[in-house]
Design a protein around this nucleic acid. Structure first.
Lengths: 335, 335
DNA sequence: GTGAAAGCGCTAACAA
DNA sequence: TTGTTAGCGCTTTCAC
């Protein structure tokens, strides 16, 4: 690998001159810039990032990315892959690299702490946060800048990016109400997750605004999986309802399964716009939570903070969601 | 951040002594080792990886991980997340870090070339390889060690890890034949993918060995998606068959959908053991391709090569698959 | 056993 | 406009 020195020799200038050309300084004559550039081509020079970092007060332009130790469910895999894509897209634009770490204290997976101790990273992005999160605690303590996706930050230096889940569910309900459907059932996942709590609120808001009373018999709260969706639908099946909204595609799939078995067919919606929602019948109307955008924005805000050097303010950004309309809300039926 | 110097001052030794203690040299008296260790604790010393790399002839112990530009389908997300998990697990054990890159030449995603040029990585792991792959070409040309997952390597220095797809499908068929099912239909994905070609061969092998003639009318080759699985099953529906084997869960799901609509019910198997295979009805018997293990082994072999410095031999390792038995092959029916 | 000193490739004063 | 020089934190000869 060619170094500054090699270029300097060929161009017959000092290494600082070459360094200046590389960093695009404008206090250099056109002539030498030309000469140096030709020399760089000749020896095939590429700046060495390791040496640069050492000289630059240890700024590596590498960010640590925290992923979940276990993936749980289809949606989650897709979410993390999409978020990663957005993150690296932004990182690439800003000249940063992403290094992978995993949540949790087990020592059989790379952790963000190791990266910080060894000085590899300038900051961290968390895609997954536990209650009383150890990583957050550590990052705060070490004053390492970080950004969170999908969770309200509790750390005092946190940057976070999330959907407006209240509005998202409100929009879904309004869309159905606009079709003339008024008796909306809700299948809601575990409310220990903030997003489920917010989606629940969104449902209430939409009904209230439209003068529809919230009927507790039309609401089932359960765990976030297929069978619970199925059972929830079973419970709802003897109610008079016009449509079903759910807080997760997987719940919707369970509910659809039950309806299919009964040859019944009510408009239904999901959340997360998983790939199965595109392929399985009936094609499910679902809310796209824009995972890629969430990742992109988290990364962008973190880099902004790193480069502006303001570590004191807490910031929170909301990313718009989008309803993807499919067949499951086209036909209008009633149980 | 504390440096060697800080420790040296506290312990009242030279920095080379501290360096020796850190690297576990044994030519040092017990007494000083003790003293230095206490000093390290006192100032909370952690070796700086950037400086270490610079001094160590640019070995960073970072590996580049190439991911697909677009994820396509549920299975794929799960595959990559699992492979990543295995990779980082191994990397952690060996003291390496993983940096993310993306396939393809578009400049809106970090590429492996940038990482190599800037000197960040010691080697690369490719989870996805295109025909006439640009990354492989570049890695070969630059003599950067690399490992491939799930594809036969064509590069002369390549290390690769893959399933034995011939045997995997052979096992599936044998399992069904052992249940007394002899007229096995095959729904096979696009044979431009080597794994599909191999699974096809495995099907033929099993039938041959059991003295069952391969009937072309029982074989449908199609693209790897839900609708093609559905249509394939439609074609097969007027045949006399005992069971259906497929090369991908998604094909099986399509086929099941068709059967459900007809209230028919034949034993069926998938491939990839996706999470949907666990949740959707009927619970699908599927081949687990051990994505995490594939990732782990690729990483292990790459690091072995990096540390042994042998760059000349081509190596290929096969990872065992496993049939996950579920309800879809319990009931024995016939169309 | 331990220390002094050179050097890894680069940046950033300070001089000229 | 350009060159000289002193580090960044660590490893590694080479002396003692």
């Amino acid at each position: 690998m060619a170094t500054l020195n090699d270029v300097a020799k060929v161009a017959k200038v000092s290494i600082s001159t070459v360094s200046r050309v590389v960093s695009g300084s404008d206090l250099i004559s056109k002539a030498t810039v030309e000469r140096v550039k030709r020399a760089m081509d000749e020896v095939n020079y590429h700046p060495n990032a390791v040496a640069k970092s050492l000289a630059n007060n240890m700024r590596t332009k590498i960010l640590g990315l925290v992923l979940p130790r276990d993936t749980y469910g289809v949606y989650h895999n897709q979410f993390f892959m999409d978020a990663m894509s957005g993150i690296t897209k932004c990182a690439q634009e800003r000249g940063y690299y992403i290094m992978n770490a995993y949540q949790g204290k087990e020592n059989n997976h790379t952790s963000i702490r190791d990266m910080i101790k060894s000085g590899w990273i300038d900051g961290a992005i968390l895609t997954t946060v536990e209650d009383d999160d150890q990583n957050v605690k550590y990052l705060e303590q070490k004053d390492v800048p970080y950004a969170l996706i999908g969770t309200t930050a509790n750390g005092k230096h946190a940057i976070s990016v999330d959907n407006d889940n209240i509005k998202a569910m409100d929009d879904v309900c309004q869309m159905l109400i606009d079709k003339g459907l008024r008796r909306l059932a809700l299948i809601c996942g575990d409310r220990k997750f903030i997003y489920n709590k917010h989606r629940y609120t969104g449902y209430e808001n939409a009904l209230d605004r439209n003068g529809i009373s919230v009927d507790d018999d039309l609401i089932v709260v359960c765990e976030d999986d297929f069978m619970h969706g199925y059972n929830a639908m079973k419970k709802l099946s003897n109610m008079h309802i016009d449509a079903v909204v759910t807080t997760d595609d997987i719940l919707a799939f369970g509910a659809i399964q039950y309806m299919n078995e009964r040859n019944s067919n009510i408009p239904i919606t999901g959340f997360n716009n998983t790939m199965i929602a595109e392929t399985f019948c009936p094609h499910l109307t679902s809310v796209d939570i824009m995972a890629e955008k969430l990742g992109y924005e988290a990364c962008r805000m973190l880099i902004d903070r790193l480069e502006n050097g303001q570590f004191d303010d807490k910031r929170m950004k909301q990313v718009e969601t989008m309803i993807v309309h499919r067949k499951s809300t086209e036909s209008i039926g009633s149980l």
